[in-house]
Design a protein around this nucleic acid. Structure first.
Lengths: 126, 126
DNA sequence: AAATGATGTGATATTTTCTTACATGAATGA
DNA sequence: TCATTCATGTAAGAAAATATCACATCATTT
């Protein structure tokens, strides 16, 4: 699947193509970029170059706007998605092993009825 | 799979992008078009627009040239491929049934030792 | 009514691409 | 060897696409 991801994120489309693909005006596309909703790359001559992912996002934005959501709302939506992605990334970086879980439970039992130590639950060291 | 084919044949890439993707000069790309090896579309402003299939073919052409095959040879290769594709198409359009095969054999036996009728083998009517 | 948000439009500059023509160096054939 | 052909480079000038910036517009919000 890495191959596909790469293809989808390759910035190869000029704004004219994206206009046709999304049925958005250049003005709209540039405005959404200005608002931080997309970050198309630039080629050596300062022309915006878009990826298929950009196109997908633009179509999404169109849908949100059709649904009556304004820029601020859409920004919020993407901010949340970014949050979630970051969290997932963190979780994936060091998933809890079964052993971790047992240890955490063990510690919790030990702590019943009185605070014995101040270890945080997420970064065990034995 | 139809979806994917469509995407791959969408003419959305300007020549500048294709140059980077293939590491070919504009001159080369236009020359290969002139030789009939690719048929990029044109947009309303007469700019060539390429599909991913075009890019693949250009990379193929590059390989053939690296292998020392010249334009004439490459043309021949694609002509043969087209032939094969056409044949396959025809076969798929009306594949011979077992019954067809039996009838053809039957007719051939009948014709042994003397021409009886002039039916072609491919379009039976009983 | 004034301010804001999302988009249209126009001006002007820069970049990209087009076609056409001529140049070139390697390979080919007489 | 000399002339051709092949594949590509390069230059010129025109047309198209895109850039930024400014101002206009119309609906919504305050």
């Amino acid at each position: 699947m890495k191959e596909k991801e790469l293809r989808r994120s390759l910035a190869v489309l000029p704004i004219g193509t994206v206009m046709k693909l999304t049925d958005l005006s250049a003005r709209q596309i540039r405005y959404y970029e200005e608002q931080g909703l997309i970050q198309p790359e630039r080629n050596a001559g300062n022309r915006r170059m878009f990826s298929l992912n950009d196109v997908d996002r633009l179509l999404e934005i169109k849908d949100y706007l059709t649904d009556g959501i304004n820029m601020a709302g859409i920004k919020q939506i993407y901010a949340m998605q970014k949050q979630r992605a970051a969290q997932k990334e963190a979780d994936l970086a060091r998933p809890l092993t079964d052993q971790d879980v047992r240890r955490i439970l063990h510690d919790e039992f030990l702590n019943i009825g009185g605070l014995k130590s101040q270890r945080g639950p997420n970064y065990p060291q034995h």
